[in-house]
Amino acid sequence: MRIQVHPILEFKKGKKISFTYDGKTVEGYEGEPIAAALHAAGVRVLSHSRNFKRPRGFWCAIGNCSSCNMSVNGIPNVRTCVEPLQDGMIVETQQGKGVIGGVPGE
């Protein structure tokens, strides 16, 4: 869901691009945060908590809280609320602490 018209603001959007989210193709605008593009596409669950596997969405949207951590292009723990979207990115729901360089975190 995107704002089409606004009484005060005009939104400058980047180029329309596509990326994959858990294997599905999703469209977004280049340069906007990954989480914003996912939210606009109706995706609100970004990760799961480590111990109880509870669903997690974003919380602060300014890179402070890590509630929005996902795996991006194979790199875990990317704060998707501030990471700019690029064409062809591979975004995945992260399991546990994620895997760096093939070594699982838990």
Binding site: M1, I3, H6, L9, F11, P33, A36, A40, A61, I62
Partner: peptide, 13 residues
């Protein structure tokens, strides 16, 4: 503030 950012900076409801 997060909602404000999403909405007013990125134009996402």
């Amino acid at each position: 503030g997060a909602v404000q950012t999403l909405m007013n900076v990125y134009g996402v409801l």
